[in-house]
Write a protein that binds this DNA or RNA. Structure first.
Lengths: 338, 338
DNA sequence: CTGTCAATCCAAAACGTTTTGGTTTTTAAA
DNA sequence: TTTAAAAACCAAAACGTTTTGGATTGACAG
């Protein structure tokens, strides 16, 4: 269980540990012949400098930490993109799965990482304040915040909401509905953009035309079922805060005899893989997760290198036109077939 | 940028660093009053023991490393399941994304983790040998290997292949096809089980009835298109080494006028989410990724605690019956409609 | 022969902990 | 009041590195 240390290599090579250190880290104070002997020996003995020993001296770990609660789905795509950018710059990406904001904070305070990328709902203002005091380079992906060494990289979800409104209006729709997500940055901003742009176009969205979706298929489905049961007139253009809830809507609507997109158009958001295989295929907004991952990693590295103070970066989304949206039907409100 | 150390806390509390260490780690040699004062001070100063400093002394990091090349999709689900099991036992899970087997080896040799879970195609026999010498507790997820402190946790893919053969035979099929995956453990074993069980039932699968699928939708689709173009008679029961290639097959078949499952039954493997939303919905084998993740984490912890020597564990899969398989048609070989 | 310089090597300090083996202080018993 | 035991505290060593500031050569010029 005891692993090879620099001392073992030094003894085997008959030199001091200083010389071994120099030889292996490319220092200049060592004879070519000696260097080769040490290199060969180190390889033979499977020597690798201890992470802790080295970092204790260096105060630099060479690792960037991605702090999250989960890693499946969305997060995985993000992490893969970050990883590429990190390796390009000679950093290693560690995905650190933490249950609570406190665990994230502890990990950061224990000086394990050179920089942190944070998307963890448990990380609150209290933690942010401490983070700022540590002056550790950090990037948020789920809130709009910047300070000395802290940046944010975000989707421009306000604009996404605007684009959604423009797209549906462009198809001729005048009666709308919004399927609300959760109160995250993206959820709030998508909603704000959608409402704002509609208002600019002189359209007002009454509160009964906003359904709870919770970013979740089942929740959206249940909400839509209730709306249908209420007998209220059905709008023709629906914007759902994410693809999952859009699919929930479609399930409820088709079950009630509505045709998508002939009677009702539904626009999702996120461009999940499922959307292109679903029937009808889902018209949606593509948010560029990989781009965001790459930008976040690059921003972290820039902060570590002290290239600029903290700032806020936003990436835009584009429409993916598929089969769930069509021109508005001639009659004002949609009605189920049969 | 300089962070609080135990020395700072000691000075602020007017005691020695020894006392601070004892107070914060629950040692007994400290007065209640002093302990409370130190605890309050440490919290105020955002003190957290340095990871490197602590581990240098302890030779114990409290982290389990999951080494992989990617983290999206399959890997993410696995990691989430592992994380739960790790936290239950007081370990932290770090997903370490490495491009090469050498990087994995370096990370392990640098003594950063107490145990390693490895699923990295770049990790070869050469690395395995070194790993064995280090005596670091490790678990493989992608090969059948066990030794002193090394275990494997795997799907029982041989049995999965057998089950696939049994299921299709049970539906009355006699003419089969296999869509080959890659030459990974699972790819090879699924194939071996399928062929073996067919042979036991007196059925021989000629080589032209094995198509390249490469675990990939497009590859499978192209292979199937070529097979159709060849004019060879179409078998009625197809087992694809994974769901992606099963979907590729369905695309090619329906495009050529075959009906699934009326003319041809297709059985996938993995139970990806898409399968239940696809049309036709995909009959498949559910492999229990989460279970495997949990088992792998628990096995790693057991090895760390020295509870038993390395061993091999396999988890079984179950059939998920949906819409892509049906009883064999009456005629011997399937033919396209129109 | 002496002095200088470059090349090669090394001892020791420092990084932040934990732990060992004390020492000092307090308490309780005699 | 003295003594023994218990409680509270601390100095120093150790963990594995890197780095600083010499020390030791040998060659070469003066």
């Amino acid at each position: 269980m005891r692993r090879t240390t620099i001392k073992d290599v030094a003894k085997a090579a008959g030199v001091s540990i200083t010389t071994v250190s120099h030889a292996l880290s490319g220092g200049s104070d060592v004879k070519q012949e000696t260097r080769e002997r040490i290199e060969k020996l180190a390889a033979q003995m499977n020597y690798m400098p201890s992470f802790s020993g080295r970092n204790l001296k260096n105060a630099r770990t060479g690792v960037i930490g991605l702090y999250s609660r989960y890693i499946r789905g969305f997060y995985g795509v993000l992490a893969d993109a970050m990883c590429d950018a990190c390796q390009q710059a000679g950093f290693e990406l560690d995905v650190i799965l933490a249950e609570s904001g406190d665990m994230v904070m502890s990990s950061i305070l224990s000086k394990r990482v050179d920089g942190a990328i944070i998307l963890h709902s448990g990380f609150g203002d209290r933690h942010t304040e401490v983070l700022r005091e540590t002056e550790l380079p950090a990037v948020f992906l789920d809130r709009e915040f910047s300070a000395g060494r802290i940046s944010s990289v975000l989707f421009d979800s306000y604009k996404t909401g605007c684009q959604a409104a423009d797209y549906l209006c462009g198809l001729g729709h005048r009666e709308f509905m919004f399927i609300k997500g959760q109160d995250t940055y993206d959820g709030v901003e998508r909603r704000r953009g959608f409402y704002q742009r509609l208002r600019e176009r002189g359209i007002d969205l009454p509160s009964e035309r906003e359904l709870e979706g919770a970013f979740d298929r089942t929740t959206a489905q249940r909400s839509m079922e209730r709306f249908i049961a209420s007998g209220a007139p059905m709008p023709t253009g629906i914007f759902a805060a994410n693809d999952d809830s859009a699919i929930g809507c479609i399930l409820a609507l088709t079950a009630a005899g509505y045709r998508v997109p002939e009677d009702v158009s539904i626009l999702g958001c996120d461009n999940i893989e499922l959307g292109q295989w679903y029937t009808p295929s889902l018209t949606t907004m593509k948010t560029g997760i990989s781009t965001m991952g790459r930008l976040a990693a690059q921003e972290t590295i820039a902060l570590i290198n002290g290239e600029h103070p903290g700032r806020i970066t936003k990436t835009e989304s584009t429409i993916v036109e598929r089969g769930s949206c069509a021109g508005a039907p001639l009659s004002e409100a949609a009605a189920p077939v049969g």
